[in-house]
Amino acid sequence: MKEHDGGPPRHPLDVVVVGSANADLVVQVERHPAPGETVLGSELAVHPGGKGANQAVAAARLGARVALLGRVGADGHGRLLRESLERDGVDLGHLRDTPAASGIAMIAVGPRGDNSIIVAPGANARLTEDDVLEAAALLRSAPVVSLQLEIPLPAVLAAARLARRAVLNLSPAVPLPDELLALCDPLVVNEHEAALLLGAPGEPDRQAKELLALGPRSVVITLGADGAVVAEGGAVAEGGAVAEGCAVRAVPSPRVAAVDTTGAGDAFTGALAWRLAAGEPLVRAAAFAARVGAAAVRRPGAQDSYPTMAEVEGL
């Protein structure tokens, strides 16, 4: 295994993304199959994806200086992923080639842009705590480190410990150790991920308070076309049930015709991380990120759909 010679990092960095890079295998379907059912779909399309790579490209396309720490396979999909990231100016000095297949995401997209996704992690599962520690100087150099959970949890925790500010997107949703929760600023979840972490669904405002009571420094719940809810500050109530006195704010989203929601959450998180790195308050950063997410659903694919700053300003 060798580290890719991506040249010296561009300093100062805005965001370091520690996460996955996958090849997205996408099929359009008229409806999603029921268990045991077969449906016919469109021709197979292959796009660069993965939550880590998506967030890196989303931020870079908006103008952020971004580096990606992760692993790809020494295969055709790995070459596709590298070429895509390089085109958008992402620093690849810490993207490692791995003697395993690159990660794959199998995506079925319905007629309303809704999707179902199965991920085979491949090389992403080989990212280790040692890989992260070897890149400690890189992580400490950026105002924000953006994290997701398509890579092993020990690597995520190691990166969060080194980060000046850790933004964690709880996707795919898994239970988190208290130490990692306490390092999140913010913890970013959608409604389904919030319900899994809390054990039950609920109203977004209350979910945000209950999530804040679990220990993160701030929380963002994304609501798709309805924007997001942001919670920060306050004290944990007796028994740790609800964070009392915290500020909960609703963030609207522009109304657009959704073509494909694949990767929209990553576009949101990448944009959020960049604006936080620029020093914006969380609510303002989330409002900008909601506009980026809305712009992304207007085109098919994940990275292919991500907007430039000019497109966001024109939304």
Rank of each mutant, 00 (worst) to 15 (best):
M1D: 14
D5M: 09
H11T: 03
V16E: 12
V16Q: 03
Q28A: 12
V29F: 00
E30S: 13
P33V: 01
V39E: 01
L40K: 03
E43P: 02
P48A: 00
A53V: 03
A64H: 01
R71S: 04
R82C: 02
L95E: 01
R96Q: 08
T98K: 00
A100T: 07
A100I: 02
P121K: 09
R126D: 05
D131G: 03
V132Q: 05
L133N: 06
P143I: 11
P143F: 04
P143V: 08
L147P: 01
A155N: 13
L162Q: 10
A163S: 13
V167Q: 08
P172M: 03
V174N: 05
E179I: 14
L187H: 05
V188E: 11
N190T: 02
N190I: 13
E191C: 06
G199K: 13
R206A: 14
E210A: 11
S218K: 07
V219K: 08
G233W: 03
V236L: 09
E238C: 15
G239T: 15
G239M: 09
G239L: 08
G240R: 05
G240W: 00
R255S: 13
T261A: 07
G263M: 14
G265T: 15
D266R: 09
L272G: 09
A273R: 02
A278W: 00
A278L: 12
V283H: 14
A285Q: 05
A290G: 08
A294K: 05
V297P: 14
A302C: 08
D304T: 13
T308D: 01
M309P: 15
G314K: 12
L315E: 09
